[in-house]
């Protein structure tokens, strides 16, 4: 997992958020399949050379959101089933992220086409499986 999880100091997002969203991406891309083991706070912190508290915070949020699950005495794992969100909640969350992306693209002076292109490219990079998520849409 460490190979694809990187912290960018110049990224305006706080480190814990970068970790959180990075893990989310990996889970979404099935690079981290359901039930897979996650590196311990200690190990991830050492590898990334960041404060374990930061990793801990990210893991805590992911656990609260249901993306990760802690098995007592055993460590942290990807949850067996991804979090269930109501359609409204999911739409709201998606909308927030989309707005951020759109604003960012606008700042760069990108056109609508370029923006959508970028989004499509990112989606394919995640290699989302053809098989559908329950309630999802290809």
């Amino acid at each position: 997992m460490e190979r694809t999880l990187r912290i960018d100091p110049k990224d305006p997002r706080p480190i814990w958020r970068q970790i959180e969203e990075g893990v989310r991406n990996l889970v979404a891309a099935r690079t981290l399949p359901a039930g897979a083991a996650i590196p311990s706070v200690r190990d991830l912190a050492r590898e990334l050379q960041i404060n374990p508290a930061t990793v801990s915070k990210a893991y805590q949020r992911l656990t609260d959101a249901g993306v990760l699950a802690v098995r007592r005495g055993d460590g942290t794992y990807v949850a067996d089933s991804p979090p269930e969100l109501s359609n409204n909640q999911r739409a709201a969350r998606l909308g927030e992220a989309a707005l951020r992306y759109a604003a960012f693209a606008a700042t760069l002076g990108a056109s609508r086409e370029e923006t959508v292109e970028g989004l499509e490219e990112a989606w394919s990079r995640l290699r989302v499986d053809e098989t559908e998520e329950p309630g999802g849409e290809a």
Partner: peptide
């Protein structure tokens, strides 16, 4: 350098 900070982080985690 990495090893020094690695030890430090381990200490923090533990």
């Amino acid at each position: 350098r990495r090893s020094v900070f690695g030890e430090l982080i381990g200490e923090l985690a533990d």
